[in-house]
Design a protein around this nucleic acid. Structure first.
Length: 421
RNA sequence: GCCCCGGUCGUCUAGUGGUCCAGGAUGGCGGCCUGUCGAGCCGCAGAACCCGGGUUCGAAUCCCGGCCGGGGCGCCA
């Protein structure tokens, strides 16, 4: 049964034959174009107008969805009326047909055009899906979504990597983490999560760092131990990888993405076990050392060969973790990292909830408790045992899609040298 | 911050000091095509060698400096 309809979008290809014309249009949030079919003898569309359609134009088409689709692309509409809403004023700087790839730089400079290309479009559909699923996941489990300040007086762990801003004549900074705020909230609500940006004034120029990043921060009160946090994060990773594969897996793979397979469980290794594996792979790491990217990548490849795409590393040396991590023993803390395909995506742990011990931890790390008084105060009024994690959403999307550069997952990335667009 | 690689028509590229008044593809323009769709065929026109300096009879090509982009390390969300 054919039906009438209206589509709007941008022209990605035009083929005008003697008696029939095909105009491909990127519409809605679809990944592939719809074929607009115009017959010269139908009389319903001014044929000269068809001839005048330019690549890249914004158009509106009224027509009929045929009962039988001939187009191999899967969707078509037979045009009754074509309205050209806007034409390109100049030659587009990116080939909107997709025949000629543009440079990495131009894909960012002209992201709004690149979004018409299926491969770029798909990455941001995937990112949107992942963020939507994160929100559903936590909302369904009784977590309150919160939003904490991004203009702050001090950093979470000192002030080394903060962007300074002028706050009406007072020195302030762009937040590098909501860590302190979400912990304070544990004194009022049992579970919170936040999806938001954070800023780090690090002069890194790598494929996995940005100066403005988006993160998921989770904090859970009344936990019995770090295992409660690991369980929730495991379920999240499993959930997201399944949802991504269900909804977009085939399309993404068809576009050349090396999409993560559905994760069924997240392996847990201790720091000691990881050290042992790495040294068996030829590294020569001493206890207490952090793993460099080469080591992390080797560990990730080794485990992925064994079918382990995502894994925790727990029982980290306390020395290398922040002051708010609860000590497990003299050397280790209740801390973990989550690596996915060899890239560190999240870190977390159980937090020290006892006021006096927390204060002592600050001193032990060379930090002045007076600088943290607004945060410490919350620990005087019934702060329960709690734990949580911070996860980089840009990195999560990057590893799930199997892309090499984190900037492929961010519309307008801010990295070491990019402040426009 | 350090190291490496790169910058050529609108876009993607080929290019050994003279073979290059720089070739190809795509995009643009014109023509053809009974549904093109693994990017149809033919023709035409292109403000193209990042910027500055140097070597040379001669530089897209070699050297130096700068700017911009990518990769690696430092680093970790």
């Amino acid at each position: 049964m054919s039906s009438e309809g209206v589509i709007e979008g941008w022209v990605s290809n035009v083929k005008i034959l003697g008696k029939i014309a095909f105009i491909e249009v990127i519409d809605g949030l679809n990944l592939s174009p719809i074929t607009v079919v115009v017959r010269k003898d139908s009389g319903s569309v001014d044929w000269s107008k068809v001839s005048a359609v330019k690549l890249g134009s914004a158009i509106r088409v009224k027509g009929v969805y045929p009962e039988k689709v001939v187009s191999k692309k899967g969707r078509e509409i037979h045009a009754d009326e074509i309205e050209i809403l806007a034409e390109p004023r100049d030659l587009p700087p990116i080939d909107v047909t997709g025949k000629t790839p543009a440079s990495f730089e131009d894909y960012i400079n002209y992201r709004y055009l690149a979004l018409r290309l299926p491969r770029v479009r798909a990455a941001f559909l995937a990112r949107s899906l992942i963020v939507n699923e994160i929100r559903s996941f936590f909302s369904e489990r009784g977590f309150l979504e919160v939003h904490t300040p991004k203009i702050v007086k001090a950093g979470a762990e000192g002030g080394a990597t903060l962007f300074e801003v002028d706050y009406f004549g007072v020195k302030a900074y762009l937040a590098q983490s909501p860590q302190l705020y979400k912990q304070m909230l544990m004194c009022g609500v049992p579970r919170v999560f936040e999806i938001g940006p954070f800023f780090r004034a690090e002069k890194f120029s790598t494929t996995r760092h940005l100066n403005e990043s988006w993160g998921l921060d989770v904090e859970m009160g009344f936990i019995k131990g770090m295992e409660d946090v690991l369980e929730v994060l495991s379920q999240l990773v499993v959930h997201l990888s399944h949802k991504l594969n269900e909804r977009l897996g085939d399309a993404l793979r068809g576009l050349g993405y090396n999409v993560i397979k559905p994760v069924t469980s997240v392996r847990v290794l201790t720091y000691d076990e990881a050290l042992e594996v790495l040294n068996s792979l030829g590294f020569n790491l001493k206890w207490g050392e952090d793993f460099d990217p080469k080591a992390e990548k080797s560990l990730g490849d080794y485990l992925e060969e064994k079918g382990v795409q995502a894994y925790f590393i727990v029982d980290y040396p306390w020395e290398s973790k922040p002051f708010y991590i609860m000590k497990k023993d003299e050397k280790r803390g209740y801390a973990f990292d989550l690596d996915i395909r060899g890239i560190e995506v999240a870190s977390g742990g159980q937090r020290e909830h006892r006021y006096e011990v927390l204060r002592q931890n600050l001193l032990e790390k060379g930090l002045n408790p007076e600088d943290f008084s607004f945060y410490l105060e919350a620990f005087k009024y019934g702060m329960p045992p709690h734990g949580g994690f911070g996860l980089g959403i840009d990195r999560l999307v990057m590893t799930f899609l199997g892309v090499q550069n984190i900037r492929e997952t961010v519309l307008f990335p801010r990295d070491r040298f990019r402040l426009v667009p």
